[in-house]
Structure formats: structure tokens, C-alpha cells
Design a protein around this nucleic acid. Structure first.
Lengths: 282, 282
DNA sequence: CCGGGGCGAATGGTAGTACCATTAAAAGAG
DNA sequence: CTCTTTTAATGGTACTACCATTCGCCCCGG
């Protein structure tokens, strides 16, 4: 009912239309961060669609961190947008086969400048947090998890001091993804390295020496990049081994692997499922 | 069936679990870009879940641009990951109330460096495309749409020349969002301005003068920022007017607007829906 | 009067089924 | 062999039902 009325600029499915409506509601200010939304049943009624069609939309919003849902309670509009990029970024990195090197390369282009701005603008609060993260890394002798969290907080605080929300959000995700990748390839974070560089950066910020802060940050990331290259060389043969396994598996049964994991059983009438490799290019 | 077996590291709902499985399938290489996925019915069978539970997951993947779906045909894994960030970014900008200024600010931090790299590395193909976009802007006398598309392609080509996929993807989205915002505030793109700056940047790249390319790009964005500030001043009272309208609407019926648009009718037993403003902070 | 426990309603999560419009491949007609 | 028709499979939407969780309310006991 609500759908057929008004302009009815119908292109695409209900999902697209509903997501558009949510965007409008947010931009209008009808939906405010932290607010509780009506229940899915009510929402579906008032949008004039079934709950079946509404649910995917809520899931999309949830996965992008726009809303949070709790059974028995309800749905709330997310109060901070920091998590909006994390899931999509992970998929981007998966699809692009982005390496840790590329991420540190990107950070190298931006973070020194952010550190410079932080040196000029950092508040007492921010400097306090920086000190705390350094102390935390000192305290966590070999607890990788604690070190990483403190490391993340250190850089995040600098980004916030630089007062650039976009890069703050972005590099928080990038940094975390980097750490995840490193964990997966069983690379350890060198605590002493991290500590020394953080200390140097912090001191530069404390002295409000912008160019020195940028230089120290640059040193930090150059060092991190070097460590990554070195670690990747060490694990090169291991990954080569994996690659060979993967290829051989694909060889032994052309469609076998997909058939087992994803289960492409019978398509249409004819037997065409085997040579879909051709349509791969489109 | 497939779910109860194996490690069964159950946290969160089926959606999270399924998305995790898809990530694994992509990272394993079982799913390749461009490949056709089994039908939703088959997938739900082989994951051991109902189609009702699978569909939201496919929607999430579709909205993030990871897959594309066509009725009557099937689902395909996206061949390029460029669109993965666009939807989430839009929500991020909405929730953060990001302004065009902030976007151009971010570009100002990165794009000069990318232009410098492009000057050093740009291939003949890339330089050809740059020439073409300039010609296109010249040709499109006052067609805003054509100008914007050519503008986007110009910057995108430079990003690609700089060989940084992450920023290439990111700034493509940022640039487009900027243009959308400008269109919404009925700001026109000044064709002659754009043309002159692009010409200067292109010539620097053609001469492989990295520092000059960076400087010209910087000029371009500084100019764009100035135009935005100027345009925003001009439209300030207009937006103020809107704000007043919005506030007055909210005043006339405290819960009326939400009641009409979102329809918060009766909650639980008691009448508590009015003062949920308190829980806004959490 | 006050606090704790239980009851019940509402919520999001999942499942099953049915139907639709669209698409592409197979089957048929020329 | 080409063009048209048929047909089956696909994603899109809807309705229904049930579950476990959560929270508000009420009642009971202190």
C-alpha cells in the first residue's frame, strides 16, 4: 500500500527501495543514533511489505554496523559509525587479495601527516591515553592480544587527535585487518620494536614537534613494512606449498571440489555445469 | 546437518556463521570472481539451513557488491571489488554527517602524492585516457552529468597509475559521494575551472614532473575546497530554514512524526515509548 | 512499605511452503 | 538451419508457525 503510492520510482527490488527509505529516514533526522526502532513486525506493516522482505534489509544494516539487534529486546540505530566499514573492508581485502604490505603502504602515505597534525592539536586527554598505551605494552610482556589492542589504541588516538574522522575510521579498520593477517600467518608483533617507536612518536607529540612526529611515524611504518617483507620471505615456501596443494586438488577433480563443498548437482536439463569455466571471463 | 558437525564454533546467529563460511570459501579460492554460485535452494540445502535464513546473507553480499543476482539466471561472484565500499560509505557519511569539505580535505592529504606517483609511472594508455577525459569535458559544454563522469575518470585514472588499489577504490567512492552531495545542494561544477586544473595536472604528468603534478593536484583540490566553502555560505540561510522547519515539526508532535512515518504504536503493556529519549545515551 | 520471583507478552531468529515474474535453455515448427 | 514456443529453474515476495531470549508487570512474601 505504502509502496504503490507517491512517486513510486520503482527500480530494483524491495530491498533496494527499503534501504533507500532508511537512508532518507537517517538523513532527515527521523532516526537518531542510539534510538530504538519499531519492531520488525511494525516496520514491515508501516512500510507495506512483509517481514520476510524486511528482514534481509535489517540484516544488511546490522552487518554494516548501522543498527544492532538483540532478541527479546529490539533494534537500535548504532550510536557510533566506526564499525560500518569493517565487514565490507574484509570482503574487499579478500576479493582483491590485498596483502599486509599494501596496507602498510597505504598507512605510510597518510599516517605521518596525521601524526604531524596530532602533534599540533593533541589534547591533554589524548596525550594521557598515549602514555597509557605505552605503559600497557610495557606491562604485557608477551601477551600478543594485549599488545595488539594497545597498539591499535595508540594509533587510533593519534588519528582522533588529528581530527579527521574519515581516516580515523578507515585506518582503524586497516590496522586491525593488518593485525589479523599477521596473526593468520603466525607472525609475532615485536614488542620492543613497537615500544621504542611508539615512545619516540609520543615524545615528539609531547614536544609539539610536528615534523619530528611525522618522521618518527614514518620510521615506525617503514620498519613494520620491512618486518613484513622479511617474515613473508621466511614463510614463502610454506605458502607455495599450500598453493600447490590447492592446484592439485583442483586438478584431480575439475568440478569435484565445488561439487563437494558447494554442491552443484544438476543444473537445468543438460549437463553444462562442467564447462562454466568459459563464462568466468564475463 | 552441516552445521552441527565439525568444530561448531557457535557464536552469534546463522547469518554470521554463513557469512564466515562465504569468507572462507572466497579465501580458499573455492569461489572465484565471476563464477556462478549454486542456486539459493541448493546453497541452503548444502549449508544445512533454510532458504529463509540464507536469503538475508545473499542480500548482504549483494548490497556490499560481493555478488550480483539476477532473477531467472542466478548469482555470480563479483568480478571486481570496486563497488564493495560504496553502500557502506554512504551510510558512514550519513551517520557521521560528513560534509563535502571533509571529503575534499581527505583527498587533499592523499591525492597529490598519488599524482606524483602517477607522473613517474603512468603508462601510455593511462595518459591517453587522461587526454580523452579532458577532451570530453571540453566537448560537454554544460552537461553536468558528462562533466562529472569525465572528472571522475580523470582522477580515477591517476589513482590507477599510482598503482594503489586501496586508495583507488576508496577515492573513487569518495569522489562520487562528493559529486552527489554537490548535486543535492544544487552546486554546479565549474567546467572551465576543472578543465584548466586537469590540463595543468596532465601536462605535469606528461613531462613526468612528479613534484609539479603533486603541486597542481593540490591547487586543484584547494580550489575545489574554496568553491565548496563559498557555495555553502551562499546556501547557509536555506539550510538554516530547513533546520527550523525540521525542529518545528518535531515540536508540534513530539512522537507524532515517528508515529506517522515509522509507526511506533503500542509498546509492551505500559506507555513508555515517549520517554525513550533517556536511553539515547547508551 | 519494599523487594524478589514468576508469569506473560513482545522481540528477533529460523523454518516450511506457496506463488510470482523473469530468464535461459530445451523442444518444436518452419 | 533458423526462428518461435514451451518449460523448468531462478530469485523475489508473502504468509504462517514456532523457538529462545528478554523485559515489563504483577503478585507474593518479607
Amino acid at each position: 500500500m505504502a509502496r504503490k503510492t507517491s512517486a513510486d520510482s520503482d527500480k530494483g527490488d524491495l530491498t533496494d527501495w527499503l534501504i533507500l527509505r532508511f537512508k532518507q529516514l537517517i538523513s532527515e533526522g527521523t532516526l537518531m543514533p542510539g534510538h530504538k526502532l519499531p519492531s520488525e513486525r511494525e516496520l514491515s506493516m508501516h512500510f507495506g511489505v512483509s517481514r520476510t522482505s524486511l528482514r534481509p534489509v535489517m540484516k544488511v544494516l546490522k552487518m554494516m554496523g548501522v543498527v544492532s539487534q538483540r532478541v527479546g529486546d529490539g533494534t537500535y540505530l548504532s550510536s557510533d559509525a566506526s564499525s560500518v566499514l569493517s565487514e565490507p573492508m574484509e570482503f574487499l581485502f579478500l576479493l582483491d587479495e590485498t596483502s599486509s604490505q599494501e596496507l602498510v603502504e597505504a598507512r605510510l602515505m597518510v599516517e605521518p601527516a596525521l601524526a604531524a597534525k596530532a602533534a599540533q592539536q593533541a589534547t591533554a586527554e589524548h596525550r594521557l591515553i598515549l602514555r597509557q598505551t605505552i605503559a600497557e605494552i610495557e606491562a604485557a610482556s608477551d601477551d600478543q592480544f594485549r599488545i595488539i589492542e594497545a597498539d591499535l589504541l595508540f594509533h587510533r588516538t593519534i588519528h582522533q587527535s588529528a581530527d579527521n574522522r574519515l581516516f580515523s575510521r578507515l585506518f582503524q579498520v586497516i590496522h586491525r585487518s593488518m593485525m589479523n593477517m599477521m596473526m593468520l600467518t603466525s607472525q609475532m608483533v615485536d614488542r620492543d620494536h613497537t615500544l621504542a617507536f611508539h615512545q619516540a612518536i609520543y615524545e615528539a607529540i609531547e614536544r609539539r614537534d610536528a615534523s619530528e612526529a611525522a618522521r618518527r611515524m614514518r620510521d615506525h611504518l617503514v620498519d613494520a613494512r620491512a618486518l613484513l617483507v622479511q617474515a613473508n620471505r621466511a614463510h614463502a615456501d610454506e605458502r607455495l606449498h599450500e598453493r600447490i596443494q590447492s592446484v592439485s586438488r583442483e586438478h584431480t577433480a575439475k568440478n569435484g571440489l565445488r561439487g563437494k563443498v558447494l554442491g552443484t548437482t544438476s543444473r537445468r536439463r543438460g549437463v553444462k555445469s562442467a564447462n562454466t569455466t568459459k563464462s568466468q571471463t564475463r
